[in-house]
């Protein structure tokens, strides 16, 4: 129990982020920043004003992990439903 922030269960953290910008880390090297409007127990999300960043690692043959060049693709979306099973992490305050 966190008395200072009033968080008793993990979902409280998400509830306190409603109408705030959040950072979401997804499976498949994707990240989102958007304003949170809805969520449910599966961590299905509805976000607006979303910027998605997709990390694409170009690993040339024979190169070890972490040495390949990382390129990033960005996309914007006005209103987005995100299926919860792809969510890894949600952090208040986007970036």
């Amino acid at each position: 129990m966190d008395i200072a922030s009033g968080i008793q269960e993990p979902f409280d953290l998400i509830r306190l982020s409603l109408s705030e910008r959040v950072f979401v880390k997804l499976r498949g090297d994707r990240e989102l920043s958007g304003v949170l409007h809805a969520y449910d127990g599966h961590m299905n999300l509805i976000l607006s004003d979303v910027e998605e960043t997709i990390m694409i690692v170009d690993l040339p043959e024979g190169q070890t992990e972490g040495t390949g060049a990382v390129s990033m693709a960005k996309r914007k979306s006005e209103m987005l439903f995100v299926r919860g099973d792809g969510v890894i992490l949600v952090a208040p305050g986007g970036r």
């Binding site: 993990p10 953290l13 961590m43 890894i88 992490l89 949600v90 952090a91 208040p92 305050g93």
Partner: peptide, 11 residues
Amino acid sequence: RYGDAFIRGNN
């Protein structure tokens, strides 16, 4: 770095 972070349990 995150001030707070929610991690979905299945991960």
